[in-house]
Computed example of a mutant assay.
Amino acid sequence: MKGKKVKDCCVTLSHVMLPEDANPAGNVHGGVIMKLIDNAAGVVAVRHARCNVVTASIDRLDFHSPGFIGNLLTLRASVNDVGKTSMEIGVRAETEDLMTGQVCHTASAYLTFVALDKDGRPCPVPPLISENDVQNRRRREAKARRTSRLEEKKKEKRCQSSHEGCA
């Protein structure tokens, strides 16, 4: 299977935040931002795998600053690393006050997607080709997060079968 470059799959999506995206005080709901993050990451995953994909997990979702009605929410998403059938996608969300031009880092997230074949079973994804130091660093960090996720899953499984040492 031929590898793919990060730049061939990344995406930038923008949305104007409207009243239906916010609470009565004008703050954009975190769930709206989360949904748009998932959509942007899903586009990247499909571009990389060129098949159906599903969100397997959201490793981190950190909110840094609020968004408001009238802001332009821009999401930048790219593949950080790939496994056999899975991909970690990183997404950065920023809001821009269109009147002042001020841009704020609103949220960041790491999502894992699994590629599916026509029968809905996990299928192989193309290898990732890193082209620079930033992409190499992101791959190393993604591998570390994957190792942590797998250790946490093992711990959860142990705790489900025996409550000793689980808090």
Rank of each mutant, 00 (worst) to 15 (best):
R149K: 05
P19W: 15
A22W: 06
R149N: 02
L75W: 03
E131Q: 14
A56G: 13
L36E: 06
T95P: 07
V53W: 07
E96N: 02
N132K: 11
C104V: 09
T112P: 07
K4Q: 08
I33S: 01
N71S: 11
N52H: 13
I89F: 04
E94C: 08
V28S: 07
D117P: 03
L111P: 00
L111V: 14
E152I: 08
K2D: 01
A49P: 01
K153F: 11
G26D: 09
M1K: 09
R60W: 02
V114M: 09
T12P: 03
V32T: 13
D21N: 15
H105F: 12
T147I: 12
T85L: 02
I58L: 09
V43C: 04
R47I: 00
L18A: 10
G30N: 03
K155A: 10
F63K: 09
A22D: 09
V91E: 01
P66K: 15
T74P: 05
I33C: 01
M34T: 13
V114D: 03
S14V: 04
D133P: 00
I69Q: 05
I37V: 14
E20H: 15
F113S: 10
A41Y: 03
S86A: 06
M34W: 01
I33K: 01
S86G: 05
N136V: 10
K4W: 08
F113M: 12
D133R: 11
V28N: 07
L13G: 06
P19M: 15
E88N: 08
S161Y: 05
T85R: 01
L72R: 15
A22N: 11
F113R: 02
F63H: 11
A109D: 10
L111G: 02
I129C: 07
K4A: 01
K7P: 00
K143N: 08
I33Y: 03
M87D: 01
A115P: 05
K157Q: 08
T147K: 05
L72I: 12
V114A: 13
L111C: 11
V44R: 01
L128D: 04
L75A: 12
G90Y: 05
T12G: 09
P122L: 12
L72A: 14
N132E: 06
T85F: 05
A115Y: 13
G31P: 07
N39K: 12
H48I: 03
E156G: 11
T106A: 13
E20Y: 13
M87K: 05
Y110G: 04
A107K: 03
S130C: 15
R50V: 10
K5Q: 11
R60A: 11
E141F: 02
A109N: 07
N136R: 15
G3R: 04
N52R: 13
L128S: 02
G165C: 06
I58H: 05
P126A: 14
S65P: 03
K154S: 12
G90E: 07
L98G: 00
I129M: 13
S86E: 03
V103T: 07
H15A: 13
S14E: 15
E131C: 12
P24L: 12
G70A: 14
C9E: 08
D62T: 14
M87L: 08
R149P: 00
C104G: 02
R47Q: 08
A56I: 04
K7E: 15
